[in-house]
Design a binder for these strands. Structure first.
Lengths: 260, 260
DNA sequence: TGCCTTCTTTGCGTTGGCGCAAACAAGAGG
DNA sequence: CCTCTTGTTTGCGCCAACGCAAAGAAGGCA
């Protein structure tokens, strides 16, 4: 890979919460044991049930994290966008991926063999702490979702799901903010634990009230505040893992070091 | 604290997955910065919303982990029994407990200040890896619960909850296995996201079929296999974090070292 | 012993959301 | 341009689970 690409990757590494706050030497070290992979739209990044052997950061593209029930039903956990990591579990020996991650777009992934990641953990304890932070935050998010699932009804959950999606894949259009993802009614249903019929009905209703504006596999939010109203309690967490220390200088220093 | 108590605590430390696989010197080091606390039944071990400053291992007693909704409803996440840890989040700066943990019994807790835990992480990277493993496994459990909440109905979820409880607090009695916890119908309802009425009805039905045998705040399982039948797919995870390496010799070695 | 609180059961009406079927719309691909 | 596939809408019947109320048990405590 050429220098500019490498610097871009370094950028990604340093700005990802897993590797945040690393000393100058470490980042290049980390990059050295990484591999670049491309996955075509529809391909799988990790497969539920397979031994967890790869950790990765999504450089380009979007991906969908799903889980299959033993009786064949599928649920969707969340969508991944560029910059997010996956497969931290690979740092641990003898684990199996509990989820499947599929590429929605063509994706590009920077990835590490699980064993290599474990080595990095031992060499740079900060990474371990970062990883812990990430898992803790993911856990909090999941707990919140779980709680909502227990206490809220479909309307609220759908509103919340749309709000979440718009923050990760929102894009301005004249009518409001478009969720820039191929989102069928069924996809939403799998995300909130409902049927595609109920989702369709709810959306139709919202469309009549002018809250959303939807087409085939395409949804735009016209009145965010109306949705927030329906959702009630705002999501407590910023949903993004904030790096504990400023990265800007580290990053430019690294680029310079690598350029020489 | 006297020597036998100390050795007992060391036992607990070493057998807890957080500190598993520690080199000989480390365990005493870890123990040195710990503090012993007692909490009376009904007291709180950690409070939702408070700054996360303490990590702990439950030495004696049982505790209940709950979460409060903004609109006042409560859900129960799980029960903690002796030997389990809580508050790993305290290792990270500027965090807030997302849950409340209340003592069901009189409890005894070995605890560490959050900052101290973070130091231990940096000094002994193995601890960080262990913590990560724990969080990963908790996350998997929670994902499974979430999935079940999305796809299964009350009967199945209740069956599963009872099975889970019986593994952590089961006790043999003539009729079968008693869940040794003060469990009101409402507690179960909060655990599975249902109303106490529905829970009561379901249990009555099961009682008539001879599957369970319940009293006031007291439930015993007569036919485990019948419940497993209802639950369907068995819990995929052993639910307990298995320590990566054998501890027996480490433990006795440690005891000896401390006794001298 | 008897009161009082707390927990449990059960009946009844209501309803949110499911499940299916059939019609309709919108792209994809030749 | 037409056809075919895939996604969406809507109507209708149904049922699991809720919500409330009221009565019945079981302990706790004086």
């Amino acid at each position: 890979m050429d220098e500019s690409a490498q610097s871009e990757h370094l950028n990604c590494i340093l700005s990802n919460p897993v590797f945040a706050g690393l000393p100058a030497l470490a980042a290049a070290d980390v990059l050295a044991v990484s591999r670049l992979r491309s996955i075509a739209a529809g391909g799988v990044l990790v497969a539920q049930g397979a031994t967890a052997d790869r950790f990765g950061i999504l450089l380009r593209g979007r991906a969908r994290m799903t889980q299959l029930t033993s009786d064949g039903r599928q649920i969707a956990l969340r969508y991944l966008v560029a910059g997010q990591e996956f497969g931290l579990i690979a740092a641990l020996p003898d684990m199996v991926y509990p989820v499947t991650i599929e590429a929605v777009d063509d994706c590009q992934v920077l990835c590490w063999a699980g064993g290599r990641l474990a080595e990095l953990f031992l060499r740079y304890p900060q990474i371990g702490l970062n990883a812990l932070r990430i898992m803790v935050i993911r856990n909090q998010e999941l707990q919140a979702r779980y709680r909502q699932q227990l206490t809220e009804r479909v309307e609220q959950r759908l509103a919340r799901a749309l709000l979440r999606l718009v923050t990760i894949a929102g894009e301005d259009i004249p009518q409001g903010r478009l969720i820039n993802l191929p989102l069928a009614r069924e996809d939403l249903a799998e995300l909130i634990g409902a049927t595609l019929f109920t989702v369709s009905r709810t959306l139709s209703q919202w469309e009549q009230s002018g809250i959303v504006c939807s087409g085939r596999e395409r949804i735009a939010i016209c009145h965010l505040d109306a949705l927030e109203e329906i959702a009630g309690e705002p999501e407590p967490l910023p949903s993004e893992c904030v790096a504990p220390c400023a990265l800007a200088e580290l990053l430019t220093a690294k680029r310079a070091a690598l350029a020489t």
